[in-house]
């Protein structure tokens, strides 16, 4: 208690005298930033979860070139990968709201009237499109021998997919997926443009409320960096676990051993 008080006093005097940044203001509003971080995490990971679930069947359909379905999915992924996320969010939020028919429809009241839903729909469709495409690549890269071996073992196409093709495709896609997770996190700042109080939204609120330039953005930045750090750490562990067979062996090469001896 005593310690905390003297720390605050130090922070106050530092903020008022020497620092160009008002740390006390940030400290007083930290609670809001944690709330904002929660919104950001919720949006990011809900979109990734649902988008990922959508992407698996779409990627399979694309990889096996199912007629009609595959080109249709290609159009979808092309549109969502080829246009900025901001435009997609605006289309769902401001665009759809313009139509009287949409406003009167059953979708309006709980869903399309809420900024949260508009953002989650746009984010989900966006990440699903990206995930579909690189997962398709990973499935297509399945070595032919693996599939033949599975056939030789008498596996049905479904079992083959479940036990051989998909697990290995997921492994191959893991490094690309860590980028997708971080991009989705970075993209989530768009939520603040349609009134959601995510991390950046809180930062802008603080700047707007007290007419500041740095404090809100800097604090949000530190939070984003912490989240990205945790994400990359988690992926590093996952890559160690699932891509361990690709790492160079740790036993010394025979040549090196001889020199040492």
């Amino acid at each position: 208690m005593e310690n905390e008080r003297s720390f605050l006093e130090y922070l106050q005097s530092f903020s008022e005298t020497r620092s160009p940044i008002d740390f006390i203001l940030i400290y007083d509003n930290l609670g809001r930033f944690f709330d904002g971080a929660l919104v950001t995490l919720q949006l990011t990971f809900l979109a990734l979860l649902v988008g990922g679930l959508i992407a698996v069947p779409l990627a399979i359909a694309r990889a096996y070139r199912k007629p009609v379905i595959s080109p249709a999915i290609r159009i979808y992924t092309y549109v969502f990968c080829g246009t900025p996320l901001l435009v997609q969010v605006y289309l769902f939020y401001f665009g759809l709201g313009q139509f009287k028919a949409v406003q009167d429809s059953f979708l309006w009241d709980p869903i399309l009237s809420s900024p949260w839903w508009c953002v989650i729909i746009a984010f989900t469709l966006n990440t699903a499109a990206y995930t579909t495409e690189f997962l398709r690549g990973a499935i297509e890269a399945t070595p032919h021998g693996e599939v033949e071996a599975a056939k030789a073992c008498g596996m049905s196409p479904f079992t083959r997919m479940r036990l051989v093709v998909l697990p290995n495709a997921f492994r191959r896609a893991l490094p690309a997926y860590s980028n997708e997770v971080i991009f989705t996190l970075h993209g989530s700042v768009i939520a603040s443009t349609v009134t959601l109080q995510d991390l950046l939204g809180v930062g802008r609120w603080l700047n707007g409320r007290y007419y500041l330039a740095y404090e809100g953005f800097l604090t949000a930045m530190v939070f984003y960096m912490a989240i990205v750090f945790l994400i990359t750490f988690a992926f590093r562990l996952a890559e160690k676990r699932f891509l361990g067979h690709l790492r160079p062996r740790e036993t010394p090469a025979p040549g090196a051993a001889r020199v040492a001896a």
């Binding site: 709201g97 406003q103 009237s113 809420s114 900024p115 009134t195 939204g201 609120w205 707007g208």
Partner: peptide, 18 residues
């Protein structure tokens, strides 16, 4: 309280009933 980037967006959302 909902905070907007431009006043035009505020009016747009008043019209849609948000």
């Amino acid at each position: 309280l909902r905070l907007y980037n431009t006043q035009e967006d505020v009016f747009a959302d008043l019209v849609t009933g948000r």
